[in-house]
Amino acid sequence: MNRNDQQAYDRGTSLFSPDGRIYQVEYAREAVKRGAPSLGIRTTEGVVIAAQRRTSSSLMEGESIEKLHKLDDFLGAASAGHVADARRLIDDARTAAQRNRLRYGEPLGVETLTKTLSDEIQETTQYGGTRPFGAALLIAGMDGEGLDARPRLYQTDPSGAPQEWRAVAIGSGRDDIQEFLEDTWSESLTIDEGVEIAVRALLSGDDELDAGNVTIATITADGYRTVSEDEIQSVLDEHQEPTDEDDE
């Protein structure tokens, strides 16, 4: 197919090309690939979500860039891609979680929430006058309560297709980070080991990683917790190669 033929099909989100592709969805996926990386790791005790924050200026406050989001006491999300698109989905996720608590008096299930968001994402690929969300989310949390609580980790896609993972990365450098996760993940990981692997995974994609530009959270039976910068720095000190400046 030449470029002129492609242009006839990439102007609308609801048009299939002759080879069965929706170009606007593929462009949205490219937007996700250009975003700063995020990852999730399922462990025996809960789920770890982590993300790297990129600032466009040394004068920008890194904490103002939200990559991890608390959705409910036992639900969290990490995003990659267009920040504004991700925030819209996060707001919808929080609304769904609150509505479920008010209506049924219990937390919303991870799988249920993921499928609800995926339905919303998919609708943008089916009707004219809209564009696909240029963001992907990792939805993490605990299904059930107490001893019966089970960690779950899902990924959404701009096409609206949800997938469940043991460990997964999204955003730029995804291939290198995913390869690291495939080599290091095991069924017996504890939550502390998951935090360490999350830092090392981000370090595999950027060997000049700084603790101030990393944000990590854990979701366990005790709820959602943000990992402190000191904890992140201690892992970096153990695994990061010293730079020439450090040696001086």
Rank of each mutant, 00 (worst) to 15 (best):
P242Y: 07
T130R: 15
E245R: 14
I219S: 01
T114G: 02
G109T: 13
G144H: 11
A97F: 01
R54W: 05
D157C: 07
A135N: 02
G109H: 13
P37Q: 00
D91R: 08
E61M: 12
E241T: 14
E145S: 14
P158D: 10
L236V: 05
Q240R: 13
G173E: 03
G35P: 06
E106W: 06
S58E: 13
G205L: 03
A140S: 06
G109W: 08
E111A: 15
D148M: 10
D222T: 07
A80C: 13
M142Y: 09
Q155D: 00
S186L: 00
I22F: 12
T243W: 02
N4R: 13
D92W: 02
D91N: 14
G173D: 03
S159V: 05
E45G: 12
G205S: 09
R99K: 12
G134V: 11
G205R: 10
Y127L: 12
I139A: 04
H69C: 09
G223K: 12
I65G: 02
T114N: 09
R174A: 13
G12K: 15
R166H: 11
H82L: 15
E193K: 12
E26R: 12
D192P: 00
I139M: 06
R42P: 00
G129V: 12
G105V: 02
M1D: 12
I177K: 07
Y224S: 02
A80I: 07
D157H: 04
E26N: 11
G20T: 08
D246H: 10
S159D: 15
G212A: 14
V195H: 02
Y104P: 06
G46R: 01
E45V: 06
L117S: 08
L147Y: 06
R225W: 02
T184V: 15
D72T: 10
D176I: 15
A161P: 00
D192G: 04
R34K: 15
R42H: 08
R166A: 10
Q240V: 08
A78Y: 03
